[in-house]
Write a protein that binds this DNA or RNA. Structure first.
Ligand SMILES: [Mn+2]
Ligand SMILES: [Mn+2]
Length: 300
DNA sequence: GACGTAC
DNA sequence: GTACGTCAACGCTTT
DNA sequence: AAAGCG
């Protein structure tokens, strides 16, 4: 079934240097929809639109436009001093319609619509200072090991398609955003304390001094992270890809290792590395006290 | 990208 | 009819 | 209160 029959400007080039048109992007999302929709379907959506291509200024969009067709599902989400009417993308038709709007990237909340104050994911967003992906992989392994061995938390990595990596820890939705963020913040500062030349938790760029920023702030109400399999607004249209730890240690050399052209081949021979993501979701109770003990030991 | 308004 | 301007996020931290 | 940041 083709849903792209009413799309305006399918031949418009959105990625000038790689020559990718809106039609090509639609073909990608048509093909990836079945893999992507499970991550999109029950979360408020934020669009990153580039109707005039990636070389022109794009914009984020949270509110559904007035003119969006009425078959597109939306949800009212409370914000400071008001409400935001987010799209819920729960089917291929909606996904393709939004690409038709010039959407290149899809960003999702860390909580689901039925319990918005309680995230089902904790995300460590590792933002490298200047490319150097090798540093990111090593740092990701260090953080993984801290979470796994010291705190008993299994994490799942994703190439963001931009420059960094996300480490995702599944949660059982017993901790609210403020608790989860406080925990993530403590870990970020702990890594910066133990590896002062490698990690930083500094929000201000000028204070990072070439170190990897452990961004714990994604873990906040109504804040977002790139959706698995979303394309990104960079030449060649790289995509966000869940990966296995073995792959990260071995072959992968870039956060943009896969594009809308190469991802399909990978999916053919690689089973889902995130198969067990929600098999064992955590409450953070145990990990919080373990981290307190760990931090005390380090302080003495 | 869609829409309203000016010419 | 065409051209052009306008609009399309938000929460947390730091200063 | 405003700027920086993602
Ligand atoms: Mn990032
Ligand atoms: Mn335009």
């Amino acid at each position: 079934m083709i849903f792209s029959d009413k799309i305006a400007y399918s031949d418009k080039i959105l990625f000038p240097k790689s020559g990718i048109t809106k039609g090509k992007l639609i073909a990608y999302y048509e093909a990836i929809a079945a893999d992507m929709l499970p991550y999109l379907k029950d979360r408020p959506l934020t669009l990153h639109r580039f109707p005039d291509g990636i070389e022109k200024k794009g914009f984020f969009q949270k509110n559904a436009s007035d003119y969006f067709p009425d078959w597109i599902k939306t949800i009212e989400v409370k914000k400071q001093g008001g409400w935001v009417n987010h799209v819920i993308c729960d089917c291929k038709e909606t996904l393709i319609y939004l690409v038709g709007q010039g959407t290149i990237s899809f960003h999702i909340t860390l909580s689901r619509t039925d319990k918005l104050d309680y995230p089902d994911k904790l995300i460590f967003d590792l933002d490298p200072p200047n490319g150097s992906f090798c540093d990111v992989t090593k740092s990701a392994q260090i953080l993984r090991s801290l979470l796994e061995s010291e705190l008993g938390l299994t994490s799942f990595p994703m190439l963001t398609g931009s420059s960094g990596i996300h480490l995702v820890v599944p949660l059982d939705r017993s901790d609210n955003f403020d608790s989860v963020r406080a925990f993530a913040k403590n870990i970020a500062h702990y890594t910066a304390k133990v590896y002062p030349e490698k990690f930083t938790a500094e929000i201000r760029k000028e204070k990072r001094k070439g170190r990897l920023f452990v961004d714990y702030l994604r873990n906040s109400y109504a804040q977002t992270a790139i959706c698995p399999f979303s394309a990104r607004a960079f030449e060649n249209a790289p995509v966000a890809v869940p990966i296995g730890w073995d792959e990260l240690q071995n072959g992968i050399k870039s956060a943009q290792a896969f594009t809308i052209d190469t991802i399909s081949n990978r999916l053919k021979y690689k089973s889902n590395p995130w198969e067990d993501l929600f098999r064992n979701p955590y409450s953070l109770d145990g990990a919080i006290s373990k981290l307190e003990n760990l931090s005390e030991k380090k302080l003495v």
